[in-house]
Nucleic acid binder design. Sequence first.
DNA 1: TTGAATGCAAAAAATTTGCATATTG
DNA 2: CAATATGCAAATTTTTTGCATTCAA
Lengths: 140, 140
Amino acid sequence: MVQDIGEQLRAQGRRMTPQRQRVLDAVASLAHATPEDVVAAVARDGGAPLSPSTVYRALEALESLGAVGHTHLDHRAPTYHLADHADHVHLVCRGCGRVDQCERATAVQFEAAVLRSKGFVADVTHMAVHGWCSDCAKKR
Amino acid sequence: MVQDIGEQLRAQGRRMTPQRQRVLDAVASLAHATPEDVVAAVARDGGAPLSPSTVYRALEALESLGAVGHTHLDHRAPTYHLADHADHVHLVCRGCGRVDQCERATAVQFEAAVLRSKGFVADVTHMAVHGWCSDCAKKR
DNA sequence: TTGAATGCAAAAAATTTGCATATTG
DNA sequence: CAATATGCAAATTTTTTGCATTCAA
């Protein structure tokens, strides 16, 4: 998977570079990382720091390949993850800020209902669901 | 409803001002407005333009009262609406960008499932669901 | 070799903040 | 009159862009 991304890039006349590999590795190890997180992570991986623009462009390139995807946990920061780590819905607590997740399967009925009533093919994983986790819900 | 917001503000030692009223009116008439939209709308309502910071602060004040709420349709812009216009889920098309909506009721099973499995009290109206509208889905 | 990718610095875009002044209650 | 709200300008924060240089293929 991760190793043939270089070939996919080359197949499109694009290139695999050490920078892109480091960005990909950072996304893989962080699971949910903002561009800023990735910049910080690669700065810690032993190599020279990457400029933010390189990280933004690398994420864009990797996303256009389908190697990574992003989810919006809140308004201020897309978080990137490997494409194969995308099959869940994020639950962001308004109280404590914790991010939990649930199986995408939990939402299949909703997806089906939206498809039936609106013809809309929903991707419930792209933006997080906000609300109150069980602990915070109790306190209210 | 809208008219006793002044009293609610005063009850908290805060104030109702012409600026806040104009912001509230703009939110009411636009239905889904970004702060930028509100700035533009009040500039057209006959009065003097409001400075962006006044609009941001007015929206914050009105939201803290529960008079307005906001939804994230995409990553770059919260959209404000009257609190009583909040009961639907937004569906944003990745193809054409159109924003549709469906009844919150469509998601009750999902909300129930998340509550059951995670104890999480979900507010499905806060962030939009992305996907493909029927027209764009056909084209793929 | 040659065009895509990088790095830097400057530009944008979107909020936020400090502070003097104006206004509400 | 006292404290809150406004307006402006400057500061932040986050992301994008131009361009000369480097490097993958």
